[in-house]
Design a protein around this nucleic acid. Structure first.
Lengths: 168, 168
DNA sequence: TTCTGGATATCAGGCCTCTGATAAGTTATA
DNA sequence: TATAACTTATCAGAGGCCTGATATCCAGAA
C-alpha cells in the first residue's frame, strides 16, 4: 500500500455551487453518533500512520505485528491472532506480506509439527525500530491536547469498548 | 458480510500449555499505545455493529451511508464521499452493494449529465429505521459507563483526532 | 492402542478501504 | 470560441478484515 500526498483533497468542498450540507451538524462533529466519531478517528489515524510509514514500505497493521513479535519473540500465527484480537486468517495474510518483504521468517516449531513460529529477521528488527519512531511521534500528537486526567479518561474508555463489546 | 455467533472464540486462550504472554501488559491494556487502543475499540465496535445488523443483511458501512442519505436526501457519490470522509471509490463500492440489494436507487441528475443521484428506496428507508434502533442501542452501551463530563472529553478527543490528522 | 476433540494453518470468498488512472461532463478563462 | 481546469464516476489493483470450510497434528479419554 503506497502513500503519497494527495494532489488535491478529494474530501474538500467543491468549487462550484455547494451541493454539500453544513459540515458542522448531522452525524458528524462532536454531537454526532459516537460510533461515527470512533470510526472517523480510527480512519484518520490509520491514514496518518500509513502515510508516516509509506517510505518504509510498511502499513500500520504490518507495524502492529512487527511490534508484537519484537516484544514477545517468535510466536505462532494463532498466538499472534489472540494477542492482536484478530482472526488467524487475517494475521496469516499480513504475515505473508511481511515474509515476502523479508521482514519476518517462519519456521516449524521443533516441538510441534503443526505450528509455524514467526520471528523478526534482522531486516525486520531494523524496520520496526525505524517505524516505531514515526508512530511514537504520531501518537504523541494524538494526546498532545489532553490533560493527564483527560488522557486517563480516554484510554480507559477505549479499553472498555474493546473489553465490553468483544464476544467473550 | 454474514455474521453469526462464533462457535468457539478464536481469541480465547488455548486449552493446553499457554504459549501466550500475559494479556494485561505490553502494547495492550490501558497503558498501551493509544493508537492500538483506538484500533481495538473501533474493531470491537465494527464487529458488534455488524453482528447487530447481521439479520438485516446490512454492514455498518452500509448503514452509515443509508443514514446520510436519510438525513440529507439524494446525493451524488462525491458528496457522500465528502460527507463520510471516504474516497469516492469506497462510497461507490458500498453503494453498488446497496443498489444490488434494492435499498438505494441511482438516477442521473437532470441538471448535470455526469452526476448520479443516489436516493433511499422505500425498502431502504424501512431497513435504515430498523437498523437505527439496533445501532442506537449499541451506542448507548458505548457511553453507559461515562459521566457527562467524561463523555464530553471522549467526544471532543475523537473529533479532534479526525480533525488534526486528516490531510487538509 | 485407538479414537475423538482441540489447536493450528490455510484455501475460498466477500466487503471495505485506499492509491492510481481514465473518461466524460461543466465551468471559467484566454 | 477554444481551451484549460475542475468535478464526477468508475476501472484496476492491493491490503486488511471477516466468516466458512478443510486438513493436519497432538493429547487425553475410552
Amino acid at each position: 500500500m503506497k502513500r503519497k500526498a494527495k494532489p488535491r483533497d478529494v474530501n474538500a468542498a467543491p468549487a462550484g455551487r455547494a451541493p454539500n450540507p453544513a459540515p458542522g451538524e448531522g452525524p458528524r462533529g462532536v454531537k454526532g453518533h459516537i460510533g461515527y466519531l470512533l470510526r472517523q478517528a480510527q480512519a484518520a489515524f490509520r491514514l496518518a500512520g500509513d502515510a508516516a510509514l509509506a517510505d518504509l514500505e510498511l502499513t500500520l497493521p504490518q507495524f502492529g505485528l512487527l511490534t508484537l513479535l519484537g516484544v514477545y519473540g517468535p510466536l505462532s500465527g494463532a498466538s499472534l491472532a489472540r494477542l492482536s484480537l484478530q482472526t488467524p486468517q487475517t494475521v496469516d495474510a499480513v504475515l505473508k506480506n511481511l515474509a515476502r518483504a523479508g521482514l519476518v521468517a517462519r519456521t516449524p516449531d521443533p516441538r510441534h509439527g503443526r505450528i509455524l513460529l514467526t520471528a523478526l529477521t534482522p531486516a525486520g528488527m531494523a524496520r520496526r525500530a525505524a517505524a516505531k519512531r514515526r508512530i511514537d511521534a504520531l501518537e504523541r500528537r494524538l494526546t498532545a491536547g489532553l490533560g493527564a486526567e483527560e488522557e486517563r479518561t480516554v484510554r480507559a474508555w477505549l479499553a472498555s469498548v474493546a473489553r465490553d463489546l468483544l464476544p467473550r
